[in-house]
Amino acid sequence: MEEAPHIKNFAVVIGGSQGLGLATVRKLLIENIPVIAVHRDMRKDMEQITVDFASFSGGSTPFFAIHKDAIQEKGRLEILQEIKKILGHDGKIGLLVHSIARGNLKPMAANSQFPALSEADFKITGEAMAYNVYNWVSLLFRESLFSSNPKVIAFTSEGSSRVIPGYGAVAAAKASMEAIIRQIAVEFAPHGIRANCLQAGVTPTDSMKRIPGSAEILERTAKRNPSGRLTRPEDIANVVYLLSRPEAAWINGTILKVDGGESLC
């Protein structure tokens, strides 16, 4: 994320309080990249999030947290105003990471434990995990807040192309998000924007553990992965950092697997 000497490049992480997003925030700060973490968490999670964010705020690299809804238009516009204040006159966004994991995990056919997926479930999940990526890219582009060579990164999973029980709405959202990222990569390329997806291996995050049968999936995947372990949030964060570098400028519109070879087995 190289820029003119007087320009300070920030990373904006949408969904930066837990899981892959939190690991990404931590890695970027270690690498001296200023970060704005946007999140909207339930009250029960805020105690731990406050502890995590407090450890970032004491460092030498600027860190800002915005606790607002990044999905609805009203929330996006409120967040936009806060971002503008943080950037000031000499700040630009060199990296946008979309890490929202908000959706409905239900089967298509109702069972004794769960009702069936509804049309509303698909809409809510798609809005949060797919269409919202474009909404943010479009908004920041219109407001001229991107640097001259920004990177856009979104997280996908193997579930976008294979069946996982209870994952139907999320699978549809992930597949849509991948298509949106490809479209962004081509249509915004003349403006210097590079957009890619990272396909994370199975990672024991809180959102993963909410998937029906997750304990069995985690156990099976640890044995399946040729590296003999599950993917860690830090593995994904490391690749986010690699793609943020100027040397990665010719990687565009890809789905990059970050799984230690898991998808080969």
Rank of each mutant, 00 (worst) to 15 (best):
H39P: 02
S176G: 15
G19V: 12
L218E: 13
A200C: 09
R40K: 13
D259L: 10
R102T: 11
A237P: 03
N9F: 00
I100G: 08
F146N: 05
G192H: 07
T125S: 05
P246E: 05
R43K: 15
R182T: 03
N135I: 04
V163E: 04
W250Q: 09
L29H: 03
Q183S: 05
A101Q: 14
K257A: 14
V170S: 06
N132T: 08
R229I: 12
Q199V: 15
N9I: 01
V51M: 10
S148L: 08
V170Y: 01
P62K: 04
T156L: 12
P204C: 02
T221S: 14
L80H: 05
L218Y: 12
A4T: 01
I217P: 04
L243A: 04
A54G: 04
A101C: 14
V186N: 03
S138R: 15
E73M: 09
E3I: 00
S244D: 04
S244I: 05
P165N: 08
A120C: 00
I184R: 04
G168N: 04
L218H: 11
R26L: 01
V258C: 07
I66Q: 02
G126V: 11
V186E: 03
P150M: 13
K85S: 11
N9K: 08
M1G: 08
E47L: 15
A222V: 10
P5I: 00
E2S: 09
Q199R: 15
A249H: 09
P233E: 08
F146T: 08
P226T: 09
S227R: 15
H89Q: 14
I71E: 13
G103L: 06
T254I: 07
L230V: 07
S147Q: 02
A4Q: 03
K151N: 11
K85E: 10
P226C: 07
A23N: 03
L87C: 13
F53H: 13
E2M: 08
G126I: 11
G159I: 06
I36E: 04
K84V: 10
T254C: 10
H39S: 11
V239S: 00
E127H: 06
L264E: 03
L95V: 04
N111S: 06
V170K: 01
E262R: 03
A237E: 02
T221P: 08
V163F: 05
I33S: 00
N225T: 13
I30N: 04
I66R: 01
R229V: 12
R76M: 13
L20A: 07
E219C: 12
S55W: 01
I79H: 07
K257L: 13
I14F: 04
I124E: 08
R224Y: 09
K257Y: 14
R40C: 10
M1D: 02
G16V: 08
A116E: 08
T205R: 02
N196G: 10
F146Y: 06
H6S: 09
L198T: 11
I124A: 08
P204H: 02
V133I: 15
D206Y: 12
T156K: 10
G75Q: 10
R224E: 15
V152T: 11
E216W: 10
N252L: 06
L145Y: 06
G126M: 13
E2A: 11
L243I: 05
L198F: 12
N111D: 15
V51K: 14
N252S: 07
S17C: 12
D41Y: 06
L77M: 07
R102C: 07
K174F: 09
N104V: 12
V12R: 00
F146W: 06
I180Y: 10
I164P: 02
K174V: 14
A11Y: 09
